Computed example of a mutant assay.
Amino acid sequence: MLEGTNREMAVFDYPWQYKFPPFFTIQPNQETRKKQLEAWCSLILSYHRHIKNYSLDVTEAQSSPLFYNKSIDRKLSTDGIYTVLDELNKRGHIEWKDKARKQCLIMWRTPEEWGKLIYRWICDRSMTNTVCTFYEISEGDDSSSEEFHGLENWLLLRALKTLQSQGKAELIDGSEGVKFF
């Protein structure tokens, strides 16, 4: 679902293309389409980052402010939304939650990118060779000023798994804990 208050919607800075009617029609010219998809991908990731939302429901998307600009009365078609989401999927920024492709997880940063941010925070705080809970990392007072604060557990786990594969962390079985090296 796309969620957020009206204040959040008003504060979000849409790119210039959002006010350009042809932006809402997937273009047939390959070079133009490539630029258009780049702009749509950037818009979707920036928007979800702004409202700190990690999921999208395709059936609700077309009527959301992201895909429907009421001021110019233009909306991206469902096929267009799928075209953009397929591009985001190729880039590793979304993952379908269901086989029907009605809901997807949005990752405005890849798990690897989140892992790097978390590990930098751990190192900056001299917390290597310590154990942390998932809660401390994503909800604790010490992380409140970090971009990963509020990160949903499924994405936090993926980020930590990337650190584990690099030998920088070890997930503690049966708990929501991790040891950093």
Rank of each mutant, 00 (worst) to 15 (best):
E38W: 03
I137M: 07
I172M: 09
E139L: 10
M127C: 05
S46W: 07
A10D: 13
F67D: 02
Y14D: 00
H149D: 10
D73S: 07
K179R: 15
N89D: 15
K34D: 06
K99A: 14
I106W: 00
P21Y: 02
F181N: 04
S71L: 13
E31C: 06
C132L: 15
L171R: 09
T78C: 05
P22C: 10
E147C: 06
K19G: 10
G167E: 02
P22R: 12
V58I: 15
K75P: 00
V131D: 10
D86M: 09
W154Q: 06
A100L: 11
D86V: 08
R120H: 14
L88S: 04
P15N: 02
I44P: 00
W154P: 00
E112S: 13
K52L: 02
W40S: 02
E38S: 10
D13Y: 02
Q62L: 14
S64E: 13
I81V: 11
M107Y: 03
L2E: 03
G150K: 08
R109N: 09
W16P: 03
S64A: 11
I118N: 01
G115Y: 06
Q30D: 13
C123M: 13
L157P: 01
S71G: 01
R158A: 12
G92F: 07
Y119W: 10
Y54Q: 03
G80P: 08
H93P: 02
E139G: 05
Y119E: 05
I44A: 01
W108L: 11
S175Q: 14
R74F: 01
C132M: 13
I72Q: 04
E113N: 07
E176G: 12
Q103T: 12
T133A: 01
M1C: 05
T32S: 09
Q36A: 03
Y47M: 11
G80D: 04
L56I: 10
I94D: 05
K179M: 15
K102N: 12
T59C: 08
K75E: 01
S126F: 12
L155G: 01
S165F: 12
L160K: 02
G174Y: 07
P15H: 02
D142F: 14
W16F: 12
P65N: 10
Y68G: 03
K34W: 06
T25M: 09
K35I: 06
S63D: 14
L157K: 13
K168N: 14
K19P: 01
Q166Y: 03
Y82R: 11
E152R: 14
G115F: 00
